[in-house]
Design a protein around this nucleic acid. Structure first.
Lengths: 239, 239
DNA sequence: CCGCCACATTGATCTAGATCAATGCCGCAC
DNA sequence: GTGCGGCATTGATCTAGATCAATGTGGCGG
């Protein structure tokens, strides 16, 4: 049993796209088995070591990625070092399709990560012949936009406790694709990552966790938390 | 001369899409003149009075819109009344394509607004036959996502002064499509709208404007501001 | 088994921006 | 011209969360 919430069912690369565990959740679900063969020819299974980068902010985008396992941190840094984590990508998420020459953010593996890599140019060419894939990417993009807009409300208008509660329930919902539905939520990212995602400091995140433990809403376990009163956490998250 | 920054060049609806002033900036640029005729058959030119709603949060989305003039406020409200403005849509922007049954936000006209209205269902059907239009929508969506991610950094990590400076320079950049390039920036939205967009209070926005006036960065004029030291404002915005 | 290092927690204090409270400034109806 | 109602500004005070500063903790190399 995996100890990492963001690790998907497929730890090693399947021989063929057809057999890939993330396919049903991923952009590739838009393609038929035949087309999948074509895509496979363009794709290169790739592994990333913890802390290694898939994309670098302001650097040219050479590749786009379909994450197959692990957890990737997406962040933007201001010139004076302040950092905002703008998301965590997990298995099934698609990375790098911004139509910008250079990347708007840095994408770094938190633990070990596997991904299908495509040369951006080749992928864009392939898109021209595959309207269904473009359509699927549009749906993915629209969904990312919706999540980002939710996050705008969180950062602009919610209290520290609401942010943390919301983070926990969102993570739980996100992992549900992979059967992970128990009371235990694996959190592969550090407190600093969480703080930078929620627009807080590491101390505030820590104190808020502690407060939630004191109030018997959660228990802190190694590499994650366990929900004790999920309904109440959900209620704080909802407001 | 229009007194409203968000009003585009075309105040009244053109007879045909072909003649529409926003076409080059809008999603419809993806279509040939012939195809534009087809789209025109689906579209209904619509006017909205100030304060009227184009979309309502949590209500079914019946229509999608291509804004042709005016300024539309996009906002999300929490159940206790806290509000986050997630964007301002102007001429050329496309609204409502979230692939969700219900709208994730409310869209309201600030001043008078004109838009091309499409029945959502008919528009989605039309999309199936027009891969170039889907592609164009994907580019628009990716761009919206990029803007939202910038806003996440602003809300999560920037000071009040940086937020206001950033807001002013972003607005200026956004208006540049329509020739509006002078030192005067029209701001059709209220201080409350700006505050809710920047995750601040109305008082903090007002004080920050006043401070920038004192420091000879801007001058406040009716319905907008005038840049006195644009370079310096840009520098504060950049950090 | 020890010592180190990175991360996490906890406590004391500070502050940017919120909140509370007038006051000012139109534009518009009568 | 007067009064009213909706914004905007300004001032005084408060506070959630930041900052500064130890102190804990657990994994890992030797």
């Amino acid at each position: 049993m995996s100890a990492d919430c963001c690790e998907a069912t497929c730890q090693s690369h399947p021989a063929r796209c057809k057999d890939c565990a993330v396919r049903p959740f991923s952009v590739c679900a838009a393609l038929s088995d035949d087309e999948l063969g074509e895509l496979q020819a363009l794709s290169e299974p790739t592994s990333f070591a913890p802390k290694s980068a898939l994309l670098l902010q302001d650097e040219p985008v050479q590749n786009v990625f379909n994450i197959t396992s692990g957890c990737v941190r997406l962040s933007k840094i201001l010139s004076d070092g302040r950092r905002q984590v703008i998301g965590f990508a997990i298995a099934g998420d698609f990375l790098g399709l911004s139509f910008q020459e250079r990347s708007n953010f840095t994408a770094e593996a938190i633990g070990p990560v596997t991904a299908c890599r495509f040369r951006k140019k080749a992928f864009l060419n392939y898109l021209d012949a595959k309207p269904d894939l473009v359509r699927r990417l549009l749906e993915f993009s629209a969904n990312e936009l919706r999540l980002a807009q939710e996050q705008l409300v969180l950062l602009g208008r919610r209290t520290a406790e609401e942010r943390v509660a919301s983070f926990l329930t969102m993570r739980r919902a996100r992992n549900s694709r992979f059967g992970q539905q128990g009371a235990t939520l694996q959190l592969p990212m550090s407190r600093l990552d969480i703080a930078d995602y929620l627009g807080l400091t590491i101390e505030t995140v820590s104190r808020t966790f502690t407060k939630m433990v004191r109030e018997k809403l959660i228990i802190i376990v190694p590499d994650g938390i366990r929900f004790v009163d999920l309904a109440h956490v959900g209620q704080i998250a909802a407001e």
